[in-house]
Amino acid sequence: MQFIFQIVYLIVTVAPVLILLSLAGKKYVEMVNVLDKKEFGMRDLFPIGFQAMDMSGYKYGNNIDRKLRRQIRELYNPDYTEFYLRVYWAGGVTFIFVGFLLSGVLNFFMGTLGLVLGIAFGAFTAYSLFNGLNEKIEQRHMKILIDMPDFTNKILILSGAGMTLRAAIIKISDEMSLDTPLYRTLTACVDKMKNGETDEAAFEIMSVQCNTPQMRRFVSVVLQNMKRGGSDVITALRDIGMEQWAERKATAMRISAEADTKLLFPMMLMLFSVMIVTITPAILSMNI
């Protein structure tokens, strides 16, 4: 009886995957090929998820989707927000189907334990895909926080030398080639300014893709100066710069504390190993 259940369950888990792959055909090849293989390691299976989501008629309009859109705009080109929203949902659904498929195969060889392991694998990988967005954004915010004080300081120096804020920002973008989130976003912002976009539209990229309180305040001050002018902007930027240096120092101390905590467990293992190496010969000699 159990053998029959295993066969039936295997068929039930394999059949949907094969059907979805057959229906997908080559419809999603171009969408899959543009994805980074390092970032989306199982991208070749994503047609399963794309086909399932299209067949479901999902509208991508609930609160979860709105949150995902905000996160995706920070990490990717805002023009491709809807594309990456579909990619993440397709990836999550793909992992669920792969988990069920794996549960069918493992159940055949390992019984109930294999079934549970397969389902757990699918659920964990799907969760990890979406949770990875939060981790990427946290790392991005930390890098932006580290770069912001130097960036603001450069603007203050150039502004003090007589340049307008707009000219100072363009000069920094042209001369700095750092491959960090802040400067990549700055380059995209300046490119739009040079191509005729309004300052408000261009700096919208900065506030969206560098969505930190420090950047939002900075953009607000810069746009206010570009609209109305005035000498108060230098004082405001100087105050912002001082706050950013304090936050950068606090962030560095937090990172240092986290590093110490991560090193604690390996150090304990090393101490335990040394104790074993030291004590074992003494115990063996006593037994002799």
Results as ranks from 00 to 15, higher is better:
Asp174Glu: 03
Asp174Lys: 00
Glu175Met: 01
Met176Gln: 02
Asp179Val: 02
Thr180Arg: 06
Pro181Met: 08
Pro181His: 07
Pro181Cys: 10
Leu182Lys: 03
Leu182Phe: 06
Leu182Val: 07
Leu182Ile: 08
Tyr183Asn: 05
Arg184Asp: 10
Arg184Gln: 12
Arg184Ser: 08
Arg184Cys: 04
Thr185Ser: 09
Thr185Asp: 10
Thr187Gln: 09
Ala188Val: 03
Val190Asp: 03
Asp191Met: 04
Asp191His: 01
Lys194Ala: 07
Gly196Thr: 02
Glu197Leu: 14
Asp199Tyr: 11
Asp199Gly: 07
Glu200Asp: 14
Ala201Leu: 13
Ala201His: 10
Val208Ser: 12
Gln209Cys: 12
Cys210Gln: 05
Asn211Ile: 02
Pro213Lys: 00
Pro213Ser: 01
Met215Val: 15
Arg216Leu: 02
Phe218Pro: 01
Phe218Gln: 01
Ser220Ala: 10
Val221Trp: 05
Val221His: 09
Gln224Ala: 13
Gln224Val: 08
Asn225Lys: 11
Lys227Glu: 15
Lys227Leu: 13
Lys227Ala: 14
Arg228Trp: 12
Arg228Pro: 01
Gly229Asp: 11
Gly230Lys: 10
Gly230Val: 12
Gly230Thr: 11
Ser231Glu: 13
Asp232Phe: 07
Asp232Asn: 11
Val233Asn: 10
Val233Trp: 06
Ile234Met: 14
Thr235Cys: 05
Thr235Ala: 13
Leu237Lys: 07
Arg238Glu: 12
Asp239Ser: 12
Ile240Arg: 03
Gly241Cys: 13
Met242Thr: 10
Glu243Met: 08
Trp245Gln: 08
Ala246Phe: 03
Glu247Trp: 00
Glu247Tyr: 00
Glu247Leu: 03
Lys249Arg: 04
Lys249Asn: 04
Thr251Trp: 00
Arg254Phe: 05
Ile255Glu: 13
Ser256Met: 15
Ala257Gly: 15
Ala257Gln: 15
Ala259Tyr: 14
Ala259Cys: 13
Asp260Gln: 15
Asp260Ala: 15
